Amino acid sequence: MKDLLTIEEREDFEIDLLLQAIYRVSGFDFRRYMRTSIKRRIENRMRLERVLKISGLIEKVMYEKGYAEKMLEDFSINVTEMFRDPEFFKAFRTKVIPFLRELPEIRIWHAGCSTGEEAFSMAILLEEEGLYDRAKIYATDMSEKVLQQAEKGVLPLTRMQVYTKNYLQAGGDQAFSEYYSTDYQHAYLNPDLLRNIDFFQHNLVTDSSINEFHVIMCRNVMIYFTADLQEDVNQLFYDSLSKGGFLGLGSKETIRTMFFCDKYEDFDSLEKIYRKV
């Protein structure tokens, strides 16, 4: 007779069952996310609910209305800021923009946009370069909650000093405060900046291509995916890019080890900007 499962094996099995339950109830598939990240979020939810075993969460997902959506918000990655990694946006401004100038229209996809800060940053950059009127930014995320927040264009006032610093380091030379108004608690982006941004739900794990794009941004999202899921998502991006289109990844992400790395030019290897050949 086989020995009983170890505590670690039993816990891993329960995580499998929980993720399967979430998928069956909601249609959102986290089974190929990095297990270490998922486990931290499960443990946090267990502490909040004062649940001792993962099986207790499975029961809630299966029988408690709306609980699967609560777990989805736990798993959603919402770390973002305006002009995050300023050197990336500076490189985009100086190196990619000259190629975009040659296009009659510009389609950009921000995949995993969270609350919209990077899409807002792109809108400002394109506005300053005189390209925003012929650009369309598609900003997608799997979380309806963060998309509803993004559509409002409202930012915490406490973050604007950091965002201003990022903007200047990214090559901005205007008064950043001209792009928003404030009250005692929030900063409100000028509505004109939102005119060419479409926010809508899209799941990188299960959904297909939504258009053909000249630029795709997916920065600091795939670090939470397993290697095989990264390959699938990068195939989605490759299929969604026009010939000569640009792919922007996060500082800890790469396509070098993937099947289609020879299908891209290292346009700016330091800032992880690749061009489809």
Rank of each mutant, 00 (worst) to 15 (best):
L241A: 08
R31F: 09
F246Q: 05
I7P: 04
D198K: 07
Y67G: 06
I197A: 05
V146L: 08
L125Q: 06
E8T: 13
Y138G: 01
R41H: 13
Y63Q: 01
K263I: 06
V154W: 05
A175P: 01
A68F: 11
E59I: 01
Q20L: 08
E128W: 02
V221N: 01
Y179C: 02
T182A: 12
T158W: 00
N196I: 03
R35W: 04
E212A: 10
K60I: 02
Y132W: 01
V79I: 15
A119S: 15
R47W: 03
Y188F: 15
E43Q: 12
T94G: 00
F120P: 06
Y179D: 02
I38T: 06
K165I: 00
L157M: 06
E253Q: 10
Q20T: 11
R40D: 08
S240M: 06
E117I: 09
M1A: 12
H214T: 03
F260N: 14
F13C: 03
A68V: 10
F200S: 02
D85T: 15
I124Y: 08
R195C: 09
L5M: 14
K165L: 05
D12F: 04
Y224K: 12
E212C: 00
L5I: 02
L155A: 07
E11S: 12
Y188G: 01
D141E: 05
N166T: 05
Q230C: 11
K152W: 09
L155I: 14
T80E: 04
S76H: 09
E73N: 14
S76R: 11
L249N: 08
D29W: 06
M142L: 15
E151K: 15
N211R: 11
E11T: 12
I58F: 01
R219W: 12
A91R: 06
K2M: 09
M258P: 00
R219N: 10
L147W: 01
L19P: 05
C218V: 07
E87L: 12
G130C: 11
I58P: 06
V277Q: 13
E43V: 09
M34S: 14
K152I: 05
T206D: 00
L249V: 12
E118G: 10
R93T: 12
V146R: 07
T164M: 02
E253G: 13
R10F: 09
H186D: 13
V215H: 04
K152D: 04
E14V: 00
D207G: 11
L193M: 12
V277T: 14
F225S: 11
M34Q: 15
M258Y: 14
A187V: 06
E87W: 02
L48K: 13
G130V: 09
G66H: 04
N190Y: 05
Q148I: 03
F267T: 05
L19V: 08
A170R: 02
I15T: 08
L168F: 05
F88I: 15
K90G: 02
G112T: 07
